[in-house]
Design a protein around this nucleic acid. Structure first.
Lengths: 181, 181
DNA sequence: ACCCTCATGTAATCGGTTACATGATTTA
DNA sequence: TAAATCATGTAACCGATTACATGAGGGT
């Protein structure tokens, strides 16, 4: 009944340009998806909900050579609601969930090799994510997209901090020379 | 049917000492809860599930002066399952969800004062969390609880990185002298 | 021939939170 | 006497993921 962060994330994307559900999915992957993941089914469901709320209007578009699509664009009410949310939403306290830390927490019980592998896996994943974020950040460098760039930068700093933590952890545990595996 | 990270988080705590659901809740708040939040109702449901799985056995304990309680402890099968999970779980790729970044992403559309307030709120929250984590980390300093300390340290680095980001963001946006509000 | 892109939708399930409901004892 | 602590449980809801289902066209 009440719109969620996901609702407004999609509404925000639609307010930049009208899109189909398929387009929204593609758009999130390159931007918002880095810090607010959404699944395909979730997006379609959310679009229906936004329409029921009167925040967007959908119109079917027939295409030759391609499947039909349904393009959504925000209504005046939708734009108002978005603006209101952006300017005065409360900070919701989200306990971040980092499952690998649960395993680390019980690391004393783990085989040493498992700990090493876990750290190596996390390092690889983190480095991969960092590379992607740096690329996005650089691509946005100098453009007027200041806020978009800031979100990428947040990701970069977060991932770098995690890599720094891995180095500390390896040192604390006396793990040496585990550069990539 | 299949146990989750939450299941093993609870099973892990029980493997250190048998506890009631109430105790588990208290135990998580000081440790695992920092990176793997659990609600009270969720814990009770999970304990039932662990019992159905044969991973824990519960026994009712009557007490004078206090309500009865049900103490759970891991079975041999439970210990085995925990060990197996710790040593060979796959890294699950969790898109971190940071809702305030959704608002930042659309920051161009926000009033300047809203952006400033948002950053100030995030800063305050982050500093508060950081203080708590530093306290935990220091309390664990020098103890043999190496892994527990590492998880706290991860939190410290993550929060510090976020504070650094806020400083950068303020600079990029030309926000000056917004020390606490 | 096969896979990728385009394009949408439904059904089932599940993990998690919130609220409802109860109630004794200790402490301020 | 009002509150916080100890202690458990259920019901409702909800957001999100996964899997099922379909299908044309373009590129290798």
């Amino acid at each position: 009944m009440t719109p969620t962060t996901t609702s407004f994330a999609i509404l925000g994307l639609l307010s930049e340009r009208p899109m189909s559900g398929y387009d929204v999915l593609a758009a999130t992957k390159l931007s918002i998806g880095q810090f607010w993941s959404m699944s395909r089914a979730g997006i379609y469901r959310e679009l229906e909900r936004l329409e029921r709320l009167g925040y967007v209007t959908g119109s079917d578009v027939a295409q030759r050579d391609r499947p039909h699509k349904r393009i959504y664009e925000p209504s005046a009410a939708g734009r108002d609601a978005l603006q209101e949310w952006l300017d005065s939403a409360d900070l919701d306290d989200e306990g971040p969930r980092v499952s690998f830390l649960v395993r680390i927490f019980f690391g004393r019980r783990m085989r040493r090799s498992s700990v090493e592998k876990l750290l190596a896996d996390v390092a690889a994943r983190t480095q991969r994510d960092l590379d992607a974020l740096v690329a996005v950040h650089e691509q946005l460098g100098g453009s007027r997209l200041v806020f978009e760039r800031l979100t990428a930068r947040h990701g970069v700093l977060a991932k770098q901090a995690r890599l720094a933590w891995i180095a500390e952890a390896r040192e604390a545990l006396g793990i040496v020379g585990t550069e990539s595996r």
